[in-house]
Amino acid sequence: MAIRSVSRARVLVPVGLLVAAGAVAAALQGQSGGVESRPLLSVVTDTTSSAPPTAIPVTTPTATPTAPTPAASTGAAVAALHSAVDRAEGAVSVAVTDLGTGQSLSYGGPGHDFATASIVKLDILAALLLRTQDLGTTPTAAQRDLATTMIENSDNDSATGLWDEIGADPGLDAANARFGLTATEAGQDGYWGLTSTTADDQLRLLRQVFTDESLLSATSRAYIQELLDQVEDDQRWGVGAAASNGGYEVKNGWLPRDTDGLWVINSIGRVERDGHELLIAVVSDGNPTDTDGVDLVESVARAAAEALSGN
């Protein structure tokens, strides 16, 4: 299960049509055929006002939710998402939240744990910064150099170096417990790319990076965001396909499994979509090729954003 000799997938798909979805869950009830393994899509607006001190809620509204759209438009958006997820040859799951409306959507991959591949590098960096905050210090110059190549170039040796700095798998698990990631388990024996996770947990991690409802300081969050914004060009595929104006920050992961040769393809990040600020996580496995996986992830990201954003 080596993770240090993985080729890079290179696809960037243009943005699709924008359709709002205020009544998505109800519309999906009418879908039929081939959905036995898929959960009904849920769109939730969280109105809770508090959370445990070390856990971050998945959604917290900061504005009035978008008004429901006509049933025809909602049905089209839901059908597009259903179709995008159902075409997966393996498993795929998506979670998205609108930071303006507070609405969130989660769909696909019920009960399935996904290997992170290189998206865990964002988690490793977040754990490192939390550790330095606890110690009342800042990352050293050497740690910053490793963080830059780990995020911007997805360098595996740099990730291994910082993995050791955070205390390997026990260190990541401890940080994730504080971040509120309840379904993520760090890879063992140095195989950080085999950390298991879910789309919902990756959305919780993104909230740590992109909102002030975070254990990370404003300085730490700004540092991570800057690195995500400078990911090298051939790795700027994935959830960015849902952006409407080119504005997005992203971290991707790709890994051919030794057991069957099938590909893990994941993408997480923040996108700007017609005035909406969305956090999106798409995780998948069982893809025949890396290109197939990238196409799947991008189509699911666009469809989920369309179903949630409202325009």
Rank of each mutant, 00 (worst) to 15 (best):
G187E: 12
V44T: 12
Q188R: 14
T45P: 01
V6E: 06
N266T: 03
S309Q: 14
T74S: 14
I265E: 02
V120Q: 05
G161H: 06
L105A: 13
L228H: 01
A307G: 08
I280G: 09
G100Q: 13
S244F: 05
D145M: 02
L28D: 14
I56W: 05
A77H: 11
Q29P: 02
Y223K: 05
G286E: 05
A71E: 09
T47V: 14
S214E: 09
P57G: 05
V94G: 10
T101H: 03
A115Y: 11
I268H: 02
G246F: 12
L228C: 00
A127Y: 03
Y107C: 06
D212S: 09
L40T: 12
S309P: 04
A80M: 08
A174S: 15
A63Q: 12
I224N: 00
I151D: 15
A67G: 03
A2K: 05
A242N: 02
G187H: 08
K121V: 13
L228I: 01
L12K: 14
A305H: 07
V85H: 10
S299G: 07
P68M: 10
A115P: 02
T132Y: 08
G238K: 01
D229G: 15
V44E: 14
S244L: 07
A175E: 06
L17M: 10
L206K: 01
R236I: 12
P68I: 06
V239Q: 03
P39V: 11
V13D: 09
V6A: 00
G161E: 11
S5G: 10
G261N: 04
D200K: 08
A2Y: 08
L227Q: 13
G293H: 08
V300I: 05
A142W: 10
L181Q: 07
P256F: 02
E249R: 06
N176K: 01
G102Y: 14
S220E: 15
T148H: 13
G253Y: 03
Q31E: 15
A117W: 02
D229Q: 09
E306H: 02
V271H: 08
P68G: 04
A303V: 09
